[in-house]
């Protein structure tokens, strides 16, 4: 138990209080994130309702299949994170490390696929402000601006997530976690799930507009 009490920061009375505090802290942070993405979704909603034709035209240039693969990849990564938390609850740190590694791998696959999509867009001249050659209805450029800003910020969050998971692996290998103390894994998992959920909204909003004419 000496191991656990050294994890207790001086300002807390006990581990339970510390754990509850960091959970609440992460939820509060995620509330902030919801509003951060919420601002972009608001802009998206306004422009989509104003320029629906342009958004349909823009979405024709999306690779639905790659988007679907990426959705599956992320959902799978959420599963591996959840399994990792389950493993650390049982004290099985080797399994935890494996699941964290799988999570990082899946996150990287997502980013690589995203990178391919971006480079296709560049080749087709669909990146506003950098290389944009599309002749379409007015305001189709807006669709692509929002696409790049929103998926860009999402990808940035993925990279941060991968960084966090890497830190978790290092801490795991140093033997920091036990069934009594695994709070950092739990809150990192919360963050990872949130980033996944954002993608669950981005995918239909950008890729699947044309399905509902």
């Amino acid at each position: 138990m000496a191991n656990s009490s050294s994890r207790l920061a001086h300002q807390f009375d006990d581990l339970l209080q510390q754990q509850e505090a960091s959970n609440l802290g992460m939820w509060a942070f995620l509330a902030t994130e919801v509003l951060f993405f919420g601002g972009m979704f608001a802009a998206y909603a306004v422009y989509r309702s104003l320029y629906y034709e342009a958004f349909v035209a823009g979405s024709q240039h999306m690779d639905v299949l790659l988007g679907a693969v990426n959705t599956a990849v992320l959902l799978l990564s959420s599963l591996t994170v959840a399994l990792g938390v389950h493993a650390v609850q049982r004290g099985d740190n080797a399994t935890l490390t494996r699941y964290l590694l799988m999570t990082i791998a899946l996150g990287s696959v997502f980013l690589v696929i995203k990178g391919f999509e971006y480079s296709h867009k560049y080749a087709e001249g669909l990146i506003p402000g950098i290389r944009f050659t599309l002749e379409g209805p007015n305001h189709v450029e807006l669709y692509f601006i929002l696409y790049f800003v929103m998926t860009g910020f999402h990808a940035l969050h993925m990279m941060v997530g991968i960084g966090i998971m890497t830190a978790m692996i290092i801490m795991t290998r140093r033997g920091r976690f036990s069934p009594e103390y695994y709070n950092p894994i739990e809150v990192s998992g919360l963050y990872w799930h949130f980033v996944d959920i954002v993608w669950i909204f981005l995918y239909p909003f950008f890729y699947l507009i044309r399905v509902h004419p």
Binding site: A28, A31, T32, E33, L35, F36, F37, G38, G39, M40, A43, P128, G129, I130, E141, L142, I145, V149, F153
Partner: peptide
């Protein structure tokens, strides 16, 4: 907690518009 992130994203969009001269 709930208002500042909206300012952040608004200013980010403003920066994107100014740097790339795209119309947001």
């Amino acid at each position: 907690l709930l208002a500042t992130p909206v300012l952040a994203i608004t200013l980010a969009l403003l920066g994107v518009e100014r740097i790339f001269q795209v119309g947001i």
